[in-house]
Write a protein that binds this DNA or RNA. Sequence first.
DNA 1: CTCATTTAGTTAGCTTGCTAAGTATATTAA
DNA 2: TTAATATACTTAGCAAGCTAACTAAATGAG
Lengths: 164, 164
Amino acid sequence: MTLSQDQLKQLSVPERLGRVARQWQAVADRELAPLGLTYPRWSAMWKLVRIGDGASQKQLAEALEIELASLMRTLAQLEQQSLVVRRVCPQDGRAKRVYLTDAGHALVKKMEAKILKVRRTLMADIADEDIETVKHVLAMISRNASQMCSEQKQREDKHGGDAQ
Amino acid sequence: MTLSQDQLKQLSVPERLGRVARQWQAVADRELAPLGLTYPRWSAMWKLVRIGDGASQKQLAEALEIELASLMRTLAQLEQQSLVVRRVCPQDGRAKRVYLTDAGHALVKKMEAKILKVRRTLMADIADEDIETVKHVLAMISRNASQMCSEQKQREDKHGGDAQ
DNA sequence: CTCATTTAGTTAGCTTGCTAAGTATATTAA
DNA sequence: TTAATATACTTAGCAAGCTAACTAAATGAG
């Protein structure tokens, strides 16, 4: 797990992203484990509070930037732990709204300090303006990736779609 | 897959890391798919060439920054595709050295252009000094995470190890 | 030399991301 | 109204990271 400066230098940016993301997740996971939560579970609850209790599964998935299908399992687990409930939306019979239970709300309160602690520790000694630069660069990469991705899809449609 | 600037702003740094890493990997995966390769497979071959054909599995895993156990599956697949072979090291009967086959070498040559294309595209319009900043910040986070991780482990050992 | 410890590799099984395919409800067009 | 399409959810199964537990070879202490 320990990663020397030299080792890190040999990795290109994209490789480092995945590596550091995994590392961050592992640390957070370990910190939140005593509450009986894993990274995807608490992050779903945390995000739900931020976008508003009662959001639809679809909205929550979008906010978390994961596929709806990926969210299903996590919500099922949280529901089984009686931390959230899903109820059909009265306005739209297809949609289901997600609500924290009382136990869920209580747990979110306990989570908060730990999440902030992890974030503060991992970001220690990093200048604010450097963080802004990182955010900016990540946004650029993300945009470039989205663009390249749609170009790739077009290409595939061309080749698969018409067999000229 | 498309990610608006606004959406991205709502994600905190660690969340963005995972998100962007997954995006990068998806794009690269799609680009390399015509060669019959997935991200972990070509990146193992690519790294093997860079650290030297004939490195041990252990060394390769370290260079890739993944666990040896995670590498096993990938190497087994590559071996089945006849792109690499694993042979017991004559100097150390425990270790196995990994070598590219002729087909493996040929494929690496084909990969190169595509990998560089992806990297160039995703990094387009990003200033070199900003990239340096990103590398630096990622290294800091990584170090902070390693440190926090070992503290967490110590805590666990304390609690589990001796029941004082 | 012999036994204990370390190290490299391996297997098995978990997690959580993904895509693809299916169902039920809403919406739109004819 | 009815049929076609779109949307929200769901299920099933794949991919590749991880840890834990095991084997076999090497190393080191006595």
